[in-house]
């Protein structure tokens, strides 16, 4: 186990050491202490490390992550896992705005709540939120899955492309071109798999699926009010 103390090491030293690890590194287990809300912790990782961050972080924790498995024992600021490619990130507390923004792959699990614009412009990432999510979540979501055990705020899935949204609780309102859709067996399978992987104790049958009505896919003047 390698330990980095952000009270005595700089952010640069932390990220440099983590980024230097190769795919075949033997030093797989890492621990960061005293993160104290610092921004850009553990960004740009590109190896199958297991990293434990003991405390809360600022903006862009685990940004652009590839392969690493990261657990944050605390809450995270805006843009956690932004543009994540692969790997998995587990947040024990809450997440601020834009969690998983533009993520291409991997799994982001948030035990608490996520604020507004969770999964904005998502491009393949899977996000599971055990609590609630804020307004405008999955805005322009392109692909991937967003699973929410709690409630969703206003304008869920506005201008959605092909991302799938599974919500167990109440949806305050749906955004433009987002509709409730039939839950087919393949969707149940995807959902069950994500619930299992993210350690969520929930029943697939309690969820509703939302997706794009695909009416705004090609510009049409009669829909101008919805753009």
């Amino acid at each position: 186990m390698e330990k980095i103390d952000l009270a005595t090491s700089s952010l640069r030293e932390l990220n440099e050491r983590l980024q230097q690890q190769s795919e075949v590194t033997n030093e797989k287990q890492w621990e960061v202490v005293n993160p104290k809300g610092a921004h850009a912790i553990a960004v740009g990782l590109n190896a199958p490390l297991e990293l434990l961050i003991k405390g809360s972080t600022g903006y862009y924790c685990a940004g652009m992550n590839q392969h690493a498995q990261i657990t944050v024992q605390g809450s995270v600021g805006p843009g956690v896992c932004e543009n994540m490619m692969s790997g998995s990130v587990f947040i024990e507390g809450d997440a601020s705005q834009y969690a998983g923004a533009t993520g291409h792959g991997g799994l982001l699990t948030i035990k608490g709540n996520a604020a507004s614009r969770c999964g904005i412009s998502m491009k393949g990432i899977n996000i599971v939120v055990h609590g609630n999510i804020g307004h405008m979540s999955a805005f322009m979501g392109q692909s991937g899955n967003l699973v929410v055990l709690g409630n969703a705020g206003d304008a869920l899935g506005d201008s959605l492309y092909e991302a799938r949204l599974f919500i167990r609780g109440k949806v305050s309102s749906l955004g433009a071109d987002c509709i409730e859709k039939e839950m087919r067996p393949e969707h149940r399978e995807i959902l069950q798999d994500l619930l299992t992987k993210s350690g969520a104790d929930a029943n697939v049958a309690d969820f509703k699926r939302y997706g794009s009505a695909r009416k705004l896919y090609n510009f049409d003047i009669d829909n101008a009010g919805d753009y």
């Binding site: 640069r12 990220n15 440099e16 850009a40 960004v43 903006y59 652009m64």
Partner: peptide
């Protein structure tokens, strides 16, 4: 400013 910090950290300044 924070976004720039993140991009610098990813690309090692």
């Amino acid at each position: 400013e924070i976004k720039i910090l993140e991009l610098r950290e990813i690309t090692g300044w």
